[in-house]
Simulated scan of single mutants.
Amino acid sequence: MTQQAAALQTYNNELVKCIEELCSKRDELNRQIKQEEEEKERLQHDIRVLSEKLSRVNESLTQRLAARATFDRTIAETEAAYTKILESSQSLLSVLKQEAGNLSKATDAKTSINQDSRTKHKL
């Protein structure tokens, strides 16, 4: 019976040792789980912060894109109007030169007629 008691004591000691090892492994696993849960919370917080920042950047970008489109449209309209002004100025200058030429011819013709008349009167 002593032998049986000794065997029982050995089994009991091994059983206790196995239970202690399992508890130790469970404690380590709990520590790892707690660590990962904390990391998960940090990551979720970071995601929320980054999502809010992304939203603000998107909103700002949308406003800036709209402003740029307004600038582009205003510049295009202004350049088109300026081109029309240049074309109109060129046309006006051409008409003015033509009229000045016509006036010069008319004036030169009158001057010639007056000079011819004076010459005839002197004779």
Rank of each mutant, 00 (worst) to 15 (best):
110 K>A: 08
6 A>R: 12
105 K>A: 15
122 K>D: 02
53 K>F: 03
60 S>K: 11
35 Q>L: 09
85 I>D: 06
80 A>L: 05
34 K>H: 06
71 F>W: 04
23 C>G: 08
4 Q>M: 12
90 Q>E: 13
4 Q>W: 02
43 L>C: 09
88 S>D: 15
92 L>K: 06
112 S>F: 05
57 V>M: 04
103 L>M: 04
56 R>M: 01
48 R>I: 11
27 D>W: 06
27 D>N: 05
29 L>N: 07
54 L>S: 13
81 A>T: 13
78 T>N: 12
59 E>V: 05
38 E>S: 08
107 T>D: 05
97 K>G: 01
40 K>G: 05
50 L>Q: 07
113 I>H: 03
115 Q>G: 00
108 D>Y: 03
121 H>D: 11
89 S>R: 06
98 Q>D: 15
68 R>K: 09
117 S>E: 06
106 A>T: 12
63 Q>W: 00
4 Q>P: 03
30 N>P: 00
101 G>C: 00
12 N>C: 07
40 K>M: 09
17 K>E: 15
13 N>Q: 14
99 E>C: 01
115 Q>F: 00
100 A>C: 03
69 A>Y: 01
78 T>G: 02
123 L>Q: 14
52 E>R: 03
49 V>C: 01
16 V>D: 06
15 L>D: 05
66 A>G: 04
81 A>F: 10
63 Q>D: 12
34 K>M: 08
116 D>V: 05
7 A>G: 01
25 K>A: 08
4 Q>A: 10
122 K>R: 07
108 D>C: 02
77 E>H: 07
1 M>V: 10
120 K>G: 00
21 E>D: 13
12 N>K: 14
113 I>K: 09
94 S>H: 11
70 T>L: 05
72 D>W: 00
7 A>W: 05
121 H>A: 14
39 E>Q: 13
117 S>R: 10
64 R>P: 00
22 L>K: 15
98 Q>I: 12
42 R>S: 07
72 D>Y: 00
97 K>V: 10
110 K>R: 15
77 E>L: 14
7 A>Y: 03
36 E>D: 04
95 V>P: 02
61 L>A: 13
72 D>L: 02
12 N>L: 13
76 A>S: 15
43 L>W: 03
57 V>Y: 05
57 V>C: 04
117 S>N: 14
47 I>H: 06
118 R>E: 02
